[in-house]
């Protein structure tokens, strides 16, 4: 008779707290909750825009509340974390071959950061000019 009795371990629900790598993954995935909040704040703004000038100004006033300032600061940190992780993983999803060699990961990442800087400066210029 076989004495085999394979022992099956279940992945615990808190598996993502056990290794730093997994925790960073969950933070990356968790950034989406804050970006969702931001999109909803903007949706609320568009709603106010459609309701007329006083409504829209009230929305802008509300955003001056310290609660919203702190919330936006947290959202910004998570959004930046999303950008950093997105750029870091980008080379894995892009395979560009030029003359028989694959373009270096660092080149792809640097290109992303350059584009990010350009977009950021451009947006700031558009809004202030």
């Amino acid at each position: 008779m076989s004495k085999r009795k394979p022992y099956i371990r279940k992945l615990e629900t808190n598996w993502w707290l056990k290794t730093g790598f997994y925790t960073r993954y969950m933070l990356r995935e968790g950034s989406c909750i804050f970006i969702t909040l931001y999109s909803l704040i903007l949706t609320w703004g568009i709603f106010n825009l459609s309701q007329g000038e006083s409504s829209f100004n009230m929305w802008l006033d509300t955003l001056q509340n310290p609660f919203f300032i702190i919330l936006h600061l947290i959202v910004l940190i998570f959004a930046l974390y999303h950008s950093i992780t997105w750029f870091a993983l980008a080379p894995k999803a892009i395979a560009l071959w030029v003359k028989g060699t694959r373009i270096e990961d660092s080149v792809i990442i640097a290109t992303h950061y350059a584009a990010f800087a350009i977009v950021t400066v451009l947006c700031l210029l558009i809004i202030t000019l």
Partner: peptide, 17 residues
């Protein structure tokens, strides 16, 4: 796309990519 597979790979296969 957790990406840990590529980190632990002893032969640098990069399954995530």
């Amino acid at each position: 796309f957790v990406g840990y597979c590529s980190t632990v790979c002893p032969k640098k296969v990069d399954p995530a990519a």
